[in-house]
Structures are given as C-alpha cells and as structure tokens.
C-alpha cells in the first residue's frame, strides 16, 4: 500500500470539493469493508481517501412517505433491522442480514455496498501478475474462462470476463425497482438501479456507470404491497458468512390467488444483479404451484451458459428460485 492522505468530509459538497482538489488517485471511502480490503491486496491503490461515512444526514432511513429512502451512508445493519423494512420488506432486510457478518454490516454502508467488486479469485489474487484478469488489468486476458470457474457467472458473461457480481442487497433492490440518487459536481441525478451496472462485454474493468467524483447519496424503493410477500433466499457453501452460490430475490403482487406482478432478481449467477423478466412474464396471471414455480424459474435461466465447473448453478438456480417463489407465494395466504 502506497502512502495516502485521509480526510473526513462533513457534507457531500465538501467531499466532492475535496475529491476534485485531490485530483488523480482520489477515492471516496465509506465503510471501507471492500475498498480497504482491496487496498491490502494491492488491487486498489488510492493516494487520497475522502471519508464519506459521516456526511451530514447521510445515514437517514425514512419510511414515512410513498417510498423507502435510505441515505447512502446508512449502515447495512441498521437498514436490516429497521422496523418497517424488516416487517414489510423482508426481501430487503434478508438480503442485508444474510450478507457478510454483523461486524461488517456495522461498518459497511448501503451506498457503498452497491459498488462492491467481484470475488472472482483470479481478480482478487495475483495482483503481482500471477493470474491474468481483464478486470484488474485490461487486456491481460481472463484466467477464469476455461479455469476453475465453479463460482463464475452463467448469465451475462462475455468473452472477456465471467466474474460474478457479488452483492445481495443490489439483487433485492433490482427486484424492487429501486432508484439511486447520485450527487456530483454538477448536482444530483437519479437513475434506476438497473442503469448503475455495466455488463462486462469487452470492458470488464468498467463496472459501474457512476461518475468518478459522484457519491451515492441515497437509495429509494417504491412502496408496494409485494414487499409483504417477499423473500431473499441465499444458497452458499456454508450456512452463513459466505457469498452466494445462488440467490433469489422475490416479491409478489398477488391478485387473489393469482400472481399479478412478480418481482424477481437473481444473485450469485450473473455478472450484474440480474432481473429475471422472463420469469416475471411467465408468472403473470398464474396460480403458484411447485410445477409452475419451477417452470418460471427454468425460464429465468433459458439464456444461461455454463463453463467447466459451474453448470450446477443453472439447476441449483432454478430450484432456488422455485423455492423462493413458493415461499413468497405462501405469505399471501
């Protein structure tokens, strides 16, 4: 790790000014659970850190209006345990409480978590040139393609990269049509969460559409009755404290005993948080039984492509999503 300067900003404006003044090598740091980790691995090499974890009002959680609003610096643990979120939006609460450990959830922010980088072992390892990685060193190649790809993506991969988007919270937000509030030099803009993530295509090192000096100042989720019929089901290599092999975020707007609008997204299987529109379309107007749930889930993986060791994720993904659909559906009865 190179020497670096550290400054704690009080407001977003102050942070942006400090960022611009610091020039090249400036990075925002919030909880630091991902950035500091990657700095220790030599993958991130900032020269100037502007701490945005304590921006005035940025830890706000507001569930009063027609939407849920989470300040970018709200802690994962606090959002997970918010009374309204944990009662009416279980898919959101569970996506947070099943991530990492309570220690890390006490540090990490819901804004920073949107920008968590992949756990691809070829990316995280070998910063010294052991393993080629197009994400870490553009143009160097991808060792995961044709390599040990058990944990790699089956959806959204390109010829340059098949690294999985690692988050749980972004998957739940994707299902729930969240919007992201970004503040930059020229003011504030709001984008749908789906526009935050870039598929790897030929430029896997470009992961997010957020501008360099922009800050995630808030996340908004439209209120919906579907939140009460929701679940985040996460399957991993151990019972806790692990990233997803497969996860499914499901929230169902029911019309009697039939599905109205289904909200479905997948994690652990794709290069970006993956909205499963095909499954949603399949479910519309149907009653939920095991067979239908599995058919919808299978539709979600229609475009999946397996590598050498990750074909099981297609079958496991479908079964996990089917289980999640049944669980969410059972809540409406």
């Amino acid at each position: 790790m190179k020497p670096l300067s550290y400054v704690r900003a009080g407001t977003a404006r102050e942070a942006i000014d400090a960022f611009v003044a610091a020039g090249d090598g400036a990075r925002y740091i919030a909880g630091g659970t991902n950035l500091y980790d990657l700095m220790k691995l030599g993958i991130e090499r900032p020269a100037h850190l502007i701490d945005i974890a304590d921006l005035e009002g940025a830890d706000r959680i507001d569930t009063d209006g027609d939407r849920l609003f989470f300040g970018g610096a709200a802690l994962m643990a606090n959002v997970a345990e918010d009374p309204v979120v944990s009662r009416d939006y279980l898919v959101l609460a569970e996506s947070l409480s099943k991530a990492a450990s309570q220690q890390l959830r006490n540090m990490a922010t819901v804004g920073g978590n949107l920008l968590q980088r992949t756990r691809c072992p070829y990316f995280r390892n070998g910063v010294n040139g052991t393993y080629p990685c197009n994400k870490r060193e553009p143009g160097s190649g991808c060792a995961a393609l044709g390599g040990l790809d058990r944990s790699q993506a089956v959806l959204g991969a390109s010829e340059a990269c098949n690294a999985v988007s690692p988050g749980d919270w972004p998957v739940a937000l994707m299902a729930m049509d969240a919007t992201i509030e970004l503040q930059g030099r020229d003011g504030t803009r709001v984008i749908p969460i789906s526009e935050l993530y870039r598929p790897p295509s030929q430029t896997p090192h470009l992961e997010f559409t957020i501008g360099r000096e922009e800050i995630v100042t808030g996340i908004a989720v439209p209120k919906t009755a579907a939140g009460r019929n929701s679940v985040y089901l996460k399957v991993r290599d151990r019972e806790s404290y692990a990233f997803a092999l497969v996860s499914a975020a499901v929230a169902l707007e029911m019309d009697g005993d039939r599905v109205g609008q289904a909200h479905v997204a997948l994690g652990g299987v794709a290069t970006v948080p993956w909205r499963a529109r095909a499954a949603e379309a399949f479910l519309r107007g149907r009653t939920l039984d095991r067979e239908g749930a599995l058919a919808a889930a299978t539709a979600a993986f229609a475009d999946a492509r397996a590598g050498r060791h990750n074909a099981f994720k297609i079958e496991l993904g479908a079964r996990t999503l089917a289980d999640a659909l049944i669980t969410a559906g059972s809540k409406s009865q």
């Binding site: 550290y6 740091i29 630091g32 659970t33 850190l49 701490d51 220690q103 890390l104 540090m107």
Partner: peptide
Amino acid sequence: HGQCGACTVHMNGRRIASCLTMAAK
C-alpha cells in the same frame, strides 16, 4: 481481511472488525 472475526472490538458500542477499519476512522 474481515474474514475471521478475531480482531472484533466495539466502536461506539457496536462490534466491528478492527482489521478492516482504518485507524483514522
């Protein structure tokens, strides 16, 4: 790297991983 918990301390009464917390924080 925040993967084992042996460094757990409390900051302002909450448990955190002190290895992944910058001292300046």
